[in-house]
Design a protein around this nucleic acid. Structure first.
Lengths: 149, 149
DNA sequence: TTTACTGCAAAGGGTTTGCAACATG
DNA sequence: CATGTTGCAAACCCTTTGCAGTAAA
């Protein structure tokens, strides 16, 4: 990642937070930078381990604030611990997840555009029939990762 | 559902449990019948509410046993409470889920076979590149259900 | 008669919150 | 200075487990 991209990211986050009358504090900036640096979704335990200067309660609160500002996305994998990553709104990419049922690790994955479109069409069609308003779709591939195989 | 179908279901479950040297007790039969009767995945709280004769610990234990026997499927939705349904191995159908981000309710949904195949192809292809062994895929549509709209 | 199952109550673990002090607009 | 934010510790909630008794193969 380029430094310039990092600045654009922070500017974007700052804007999104201001919309909700919330502040882009040093702690939140550190958290966003950490999530940006890590290449996969991580649990709060992993985030605290990566930066012990954060307090647990503030971490949870900041993740909640950032989630509400569409900066962070919360994932519920195979185990009970939630995992967090930067939201697609902020990173610009669209991806799905490989979830290891053995260790709970989540990796990002991208699928062909044709598949995305097919899913999208089927989704909207099926959901509309039920009066369900879809916001987004989530495709997860459950299996075993290389280290657990 | 026909009574005959219910019997076939119970026979199937009994067989699957025997494979793991486990017993199809009255409590488990009641639980399977309850999951069969309910048309959507439900939380343990809802299951206990639907049949207060079950004890909480036995419910959790039996759900775990039935999950391991591929009779029950555990879903982790948008909120923290897990939801349970009969596994596709037992019901014979293949479906995905509409998850309401407002109330957490999960509804079943089926998508066109062509979409299933496209997803399956993309999945295997992308996962293989990462050395990831896929067991199954999970497509979830997040949005707002009719009662929460 | 050995092994699995049940119920109760207590513990566990991830997440949230009350409160007082602090920092920011 | 009014409002948002932080850290600590305690509370919370869903889930799991120890144990002693019961039922099934």
């Amino acid at each position: 990642m380029s430094p310039a991209m990092g600045i654009a990211l922070h500017d974007d986050v700052a804007t999104r937070l201001r919309r909700g009358r919330q502040r882009y504090t040093p702690a939140r900036r550190t958290l966003v930078a950490l999530l940006h640096r890590l290449d996969r979704p991580h649990t709060t335990a992993e985030l605290l381990d990566a930066d012990p200067s954060m307090s647990q309660s503030s971490l949870y609160r900041n993740l909640a604030v950032l989630e509400q500002a569409d900066v962070v996305r919360r994932l519920t994998g195979s185990d009970d611990a939630a995992r967090f990553e930067l939201a697609e709104d902020v990173t610009g990419d669209h991806h799905h997840h490989l979830v290891c049922t053995a260790c709970g690790t989540i990796e990002d994955i991208e699928v062909a555009q044709a598949v995305e479109e097919a899913m999208h069409d089927a989704i909207d069609h099926a959901a509309d029939e039920r009066g369900f308003t879809t916001e987004l779709h989530r495709l997860e591939l459950l299996g075993t990762c290389t280290t657990c195989a």
